[in-house]
Design a binder for these strands. Structure first.
Lengths: 224, 224
DNA sequence: ATACAAAATTTTGTATACAAAATGCACGGA
DNA sequence: TCCGTGCATTTTGTATACAAAATTTTGTAT
């Protein structure tokens, strides 16, 4: 008898990855504020591990740009300057445009199907008050488009940039005003992809992203 | 008297960064071949350091996608597939186009001046047989354009992609045939930027990059 | 009281030690 | 001969120890 019980062999995760995810979330959610120092001993005590996994997690966060290292001084949560945010947003817009172009050429019928479902799911979540569900539906919608580029490198880079945005983005969905607009845009993007209408796909993805950017800017202006 | 000797205080680099750069170069230049295992003890002996900096360097390489980790089995150099190369080239083209767009809007007179000098330098290097000088002149030309985007994030991402390309051999400049073409393209790009002629700038940068890509593809086909 | 210097403390950077898991190999039995 | 079990080795994962640098504190002299 061959083994037919599929134990989840992924139940094991190295501690460094656990620490990495924990710290990452903390930074993105703003629990660890920009400029705050990340001291290894303090963190390792707090998390109940030794310094080694903490250090390795910090190395990873460093390469993601979420923390900056000052030699012999240690790590601190990266500052977010206005200029930096502008830079990220510009690059993101460019990449999203590129992605939707490729998606328009390459999206499969199956993926189009899934995209349609994602739009509906997003619509359902709008009436619902559950914010995290809405955010998740939004992520899912875009993720399908990225995958439809059939370019894993592009997917990786865009996801990285998107996650950087998380730092700014948390608040933008709260703006009830804009939700309806978002839905319309999702729908328009889906339709354009379905018709392989590259110009419109680009047009709508751009307004979509620009709208998000402006929502983020507003929420930042309001809070500072 | 204030200290007026500017000793380079950056002479210090953590060992992890030294190891990181060393391994990175080795992978990109093909000295460490895809699939090859990276064993910590062997590497630390070879480099004359302990396991700790090696481990941290591997964490960084992992996040760059140059090595993959198999849990409790260790790191190995990531495979490069034909598909992966295509993906990288596509993304690079998109980013270069984006960069030249921004550069067209934002390049300063001073930067235009430097770009003109870079073109001349490239021209001089063409007659010369020194290949590395030619490569350097080429890098310099493009670097000026990247800087002219005045978007540090974009500069960072493009440079990363460019270095990834290194893996696919930097032999493309050897093709004497194409050198004259390269010069013409450099000149055309410079002229377009000078005239703030975005359409032509994009057009010429695209042919420029595409030509390079085809040279790389040819050299790969030839060698495999 | 203030400024400067030296010692103590903190914190990172590096090395090593120990534990646990995986791999390989040999030996024994069917 | 072939297969499986178990032991030995290798290698990663984690913890800790030690060294060097930076910061803070403390003490002293002006």
């Amino acid at each position: 008898m061959t083994s037919d019980f599929h134990v989840n062999m992924n139940e094991y995760l190295p501690l460094r990855d656990v620490v990495f995810n924990t710290l990452r979330q903390a930074i993105l959610r703003g629990e660890l504020k920009p400029g705050e120092r990340l001291m290894e001993i303090a963190l390792s005590n707090r998390l109940g591990v030794s310094r080694t996994p903490v250090r390795e997690a910090i190395r990873m966060l460093e390469l993601e740009g979420l923390v900056i290292m000052i030699p012999r001084k240690g790590a601190q949560v990266a500052q977010i300057t206005e200029q930096d945010m502008t830079d990220v947003l510009e690059v993101r817009l460019g990449l999203e445009e590129l992605a939707v172009r490729f998606a328009c050429e390459r999206i499969t019928d199956e993926e189009l199907e899934k995209l349609g479902e994602a739009v509906q799911e997003f619509e359902k979540s709008i009436t619902n008050a559950d914010l995290s569900a809405l955010a998740e539906a939004d992520v899912k919608f875009h993720e399908i488009i990225y995958q439809a580029t059939h370019n894993q490198r592009l997917v990786q880079i865009i996801n990285n940039i998107r996650e950087q945005m998380y730092r700014y983005r948390i608040e933008y969905l709260k703006d009830v005003e804009s939700r309806k607009g978002l839905l319309k845009e999702h729908y328009a993007i889906w339709a354009a992809l379905k018709n392989r209408d590259k110009d419109n796909a680009v047009k709508y993805i751009c307004t979509h992203i620009v709208n998000q950017q402006e929502a983020i800017r507003r929420s930042l202006d309001g809070s500072e």
